[in-house]
Simulated scan of single mutants.
Amino acid sequence: MNTYFAICPRGLEELLADELRGVGGSDVRPVAGGVFFEGEWETCYRANLESRIATRILWHIVKGPYAKEEDIYRLAVRQLWPNHFAVSCTMRVVTTAIKCPLKSLDYVTLRVKDAVCDRFRDDLGERPNIDTRNPDVSVHVFLTENECTLYLDTSGQPLWQRGFRKASVEAPLKENLAAGILKLSGWQPGQALVDPMCGSGTFLLEAVQVALDRAPGLDRTFAFERLKSFRALAWADIRSAAEARVKPAEAMPIYGYDRDEHAVRASRRNLQQAGFGNVVQVDRSDLLDLDAPASTGIMLTNPPYGERIGEQEELAAFYPELGSVLKRRWAGWQCFFFTADLRLPKLVGLKPSRKTPLFNGPLECRLFEIRMVAGSNRSKPVVEG
């Protein structure tokens, strides 16, 4: 039985814990920024393949106390690294810390790299090469005030890299954060879903994968395939089972809109390359001109935050118009806005029924849920689609 730590965007820890239980994880313990869990290698493989929310999954090697850099070196050099991966693998060391008293994390990274290479040299007479950009294997160092934990990364490229979003627009949401927001909205396959500011189509892509029961990691490889513990037959069975359950792609009530033609083209291209070109309808339109495509559904979007003064003034003018449009045209819908602009509900003039704190990288955000109750506000009939 191994111990793992799955990293995720802050605010999504409980959703990730549920996912990990679903793939067979035991002793699942959410903490800030991720989830500890235990399981055999097959559980690790499933977690990498199936998790929509994890950023990466780290295999716990050792934990020990430290007071200075040389304590960390000694902890690392004692580990049997040649038992975990071949000397022919390229490697790198990644260091993160909370309340670490040491002056230089770069120096810690250097000493752990030295320790791993010294262990290989002592045991095999040669050492692995370093590749900081695209290594076969990554050693992760996590430091608290007085403890050092060493991990091996089982994911490789971050898990939000599903393998098929090629076209992008400015400031796209990472796929795992989008998947978590979609889950928090309560959207279910078959229910109408609209992203009126769809950008490169991240919410749309995640929704289609959920509806098709398609594992998000089917189009990519993983770092665990480079480890000496890799069980190729078990992995082949897990992949085959995931491929066999994917439903055929067919048209769904999922709609993307954007007023920027570049974004519309990017969304269409990404959906096409993923094999979902005929599943989702994407068109150019301004949110203020849109009619709801069904009598009920979920609107889910990531509007611009307005990081510059001029943009903030534009948004302050836009929000009241948005509130008016939501009342007139979106009665019966649950509307979700993911934003770092905490003024949104007040300026829109609608009281959110739920405010969920989330982080987009280091940026503190909110997912505002605004329920548009059908009734006297609706002056324009909705169009059934």
Rank of each mutant, 00 (worst) to 15 (best):
L212A: 10
L80M: 15
G11R: 00
Q161F: 11
I309G: 07
R74K: 14
P158F: 08
T96Y: 03
P293E: 10
T296Y: 08
S353N: 07
R354P: 06
W333C: 01
L184H: 01
E70F: 01
G306K: 12
N83V: 02
R46W: 04
E40L: 04
Q79F: 14
L315Q: 11
R226F: 12
E14M: 03
N360I: 05
W41F: 14
F359C: 10
D27G: 10
E70P: 00
I53H: 08
V94R: 12
F142K: 03
P352D: 06
L49F: 03
I61F: 08
G361M: 08
D153G: 11
T202S: 12
E364T: 06
P352Q: 00
V141Q: 03
I61R: 14
D291E: 13
L124E: 11
A274N: 03
W333R: 04
W235H: 08
D260W: 09
R165M: 04
R52I: 07
T154E: 06
N83I: 00
Q273H: 11
G64C: 10
T356K: 15
L363H: 10
V141M: 05
V31A: 13
D71T: 12
A17V: 06
Y319N: 04
A340E: 04
W81R: 02
E38I: 00
L350D: 00
D118T: 01
T221G: 13
A215I: 12
Q281A: 09
L347P: 04
R284H: 00
R366A: 06
F368K: 00
E38H: 13
E126P: 03
C365Q: 05
R119P: 03
T3S: 15
T154H: 06
E175N: 05
D219P: 01
V282P: 01
W333N: 01
L15T: 01
Q191L: 03
E14P: 00
L20A: 08
R366L: 09
F338P: 10
D260N: 12
L342A: 14
